[in-house]
């Protein structure tokens, strides 16, 4: 799998939500694209990642 352009092999299929949590991301503060398609926030728990996926995760910090 590719995460933000870098190779990150995936041992086994895992839900996007579990993957983000394992990365240390707060799933509430990210926007995610899977293979060029935005993943709706409501689907983070149901989307399953595969080793062929290209994942882009944009994290936001507070302030404006």
């Amino acid at each position: 799998m590719k995460l933000n352009g870098e190779n990150r092999p995936l041992e086994e299929p895992v839900s996007l939500l579990a993957y983000l949590t394992a990365l240390g991301c707060d799933p509430g503060k990210v926007a995610v694209e899977q293979n060029g398609q935005i993943v709706p926030k409501a689907q983070f728990a149901s989307v399953v990642l595969k080793d062929t996926d290209e994942l882009e995760v944009v994290s936001f910090v507070g302030g404006g």
């Binding site: 509430g28 926030k41 910090v61």
Partner: peptide
């Protein structure tokens, strides 16, 4: 930050053609 992420996700999902310029940090 949660509002930022929510707006970006909702807008790009609902209007994939809109161009979005967001800010963080």
């Amino acid at each position: 930050p949660a509002s930022k992420a929510a707006l970006v996700s909702a807008l790009l999902e609902g209007r994939p053609s809109v161009k979005l310029v967001a800010a963080s940090g």
